[in-house]
Design a protein around this nucleic acid. Sequence first.
DNA 1: GTGAAAGCGCTAACAC
DNA 2: GTGTTAGCGCTTTCAC
Lengths: 357, 357
Amino acid sequence: MTESSTAPRPTLEAVAARAGVSRATVSRVVNGGDGVREPLVERVRRAVDELGYVPNQAARSLVTRRHDAVAVVIAEPETRVFADPFFALQLRGISKELTAHDSQLVLLLTEGRDDHVRVGRYLAGGHVDGALVFSLHLDDRLPGLIHGAGVPTVYGGRPGWGDGTRGAVYVDSDNRGGAREAVRHLVALGRTRVAHITGALDQTSAVDRLDGFRDVMVDADPRLIVEGDFTPAGGERAMRELLDRCPELDAVFAANDLMASGALRVLRERGRRVPEDVALVGFDDMLPVAEQTDPPLTTVRQDIEEMGRLMARLLLRGLDRRSATEPAASGPGSQSGLAGAPSSVVLPTTLVRRASA
Amino acid sequence: MTESSTAPRPTLEAVAARAGVSRATVSRVVNGGDGVREPLVERVRRAVDELGYVPNQAARSLVTRRHDAVAVVIAEPETRVFADPFFALQLRGISKELTAHDSQLVLLLTEGRDDHVRVGRYLAGGHVDGALVFSLHLDDRLPGLIHGAGVPTVYGGRPGWGDGTRGAVYVDSDNRGGAREAVRHLVALGRTRVAHITGALDQTSAVDRLDGFRDVMVDADPRLIVEGDFTPAGGERAMRELLDRCPELDAVFAANDLMASGALRVLRERGRRVPEDVALVGFDDMLPVAEQTDPPLTTVRQDIEEMGRLMARLLLRGLDRRSATEPAASGPGSQSGLAGAPSSVVLPTTLVRRASA
DNA sequence: GTGAAAGCGCTAACAC
DNA sequence: GTGTTAGCGCTTTCAC
């Protein structure tokens, strides 16, 4: 294992001794140096460099109760977690924003229900200043546990109505509006037998997109709606079922691009031309997928990285606000529902027209 | 922001008071309960539950110098970071192993050179017990910084020969052997004009695969080797160049599946049949890619998730060993090169035959 | 076996 | 401005 000496790291004390000042002064310099005269600042800085001093974060957190760290919880029980670039993009957005704010990203991946308790315990343990939580499923008890942990939280996607999610702050896309636009586009193309491959219906994004579909296809033939699971394989399966049940369909709206790509393969395999025989619209505008299918996908774009960034920004803003007002507002039982508290954001979507519809 | 009361969390002290014992006893119970008599253990446990006590990790770390956290550093400057399922898979493997060991995963994504200093500082700050580092580029100063930080580290992929990487522990695939096998397969198929699309040559994996290619195609026409960058777009670009330079080529070995998929598109676009006119082999066996291209890719499989798991296991084993021997071995300047220290692992690869070659 | 007491390294009042 | 001091909540000798 690569590593250098196990020599004990220098402490504030050591720096103070070397610079010939008190620990308090060193502390001030290390934390910005306000209210310390220039020559001293200089002396301390030099001592810090010479000794290679780095503050011990544990000691600092112990007194400040800040950690400059945020947990990112991805509650995806299945193998799907990362195969989907979706999470990756959100993570990037989050990472950028946190970095800019000098906060660390602690990644909590949950593989199954058991992990939820672990996550709850971790959050309650006061390791992090806040949490960003994704991909909740309707029956999750995670929100309850998180609520119980008393950690400021922003959700990615509108959470369901489980424990502790009323009043929750979240960032979401306009899933319903986007779906509506997608289906309207198909209708405008003259398609009349429009099918829908839904996402996993235990997630609000899938439900909202289905609602959007129904908004336009008010009395859609129920055979034209099949539940998928957001994976390419699920898209294939759903497409086969649709084709079997309703061979005369002339358009498909898939709840994400990954499923659309699966559907596309099945359509080709069954000899349907896209878009001539069947028009196809996806959701996400995940470039590596949407641009590289043949034909490229018409899809509903949501700015995923921006969603991530926004979540982080919302959380950090809340934390700053709270630490600013803390002395006054804190106390047993106080809720953080102050005026000016961050509130949820729903981002608009746009239809991107390519060749598939 | 969702959260419950800001009521101060109970401390050891509080639990001790409630259970009618000393802090020391509570601490013992919380940490396993050895050497505490059963009735007391029970009393303390109940008090813990009733109060909802969760240990404050900062306080604990301050004295134990353990953090039960491991940093995962992904040094990928470009947008590519996550679009590539490669990282995702490794992360999953790592996450599983860390979880089983009750360690947290702190994700450090670097977007550019500037971030390296930040990462170095973070690691030196003693936030984590060790680090897992990926995707180093040859000119990276990251290894130097990490070495300087004095944190036990395991690398993903053989690091180059920058600062502080001699003697480094790493987990890698047998890139050279795998490449050899791929190219031999093409040769066995009767192909004589075998081209190679390399990965980004500032990474050892790309260099090793190129070496493997050369091992078999001993005096390959230099026009048949084009540098790619591990992305689909890079694969397309490289394939175009190859076709322009050397239209008579009859086989291509791409250094990963993503580039192979790009190459495949270009081959189709230029009217070459795969595998009839041009046989194509990839590397990775990234299922969502390799299985779903048309035709499916023949490729060199490496077990990426297992690599991640192994990296974590190696690191954790090293940490355990070290904390066990610490009292004796530590001291200024001591290196952790003890007998029994984990050493690097190179995992075998296997050729997976599908339709493309 | 259990408790008392001494810090871990730092920040934040409060004096000077 | 700068130093002094009192903890933050926990683990860990060391007595009993």
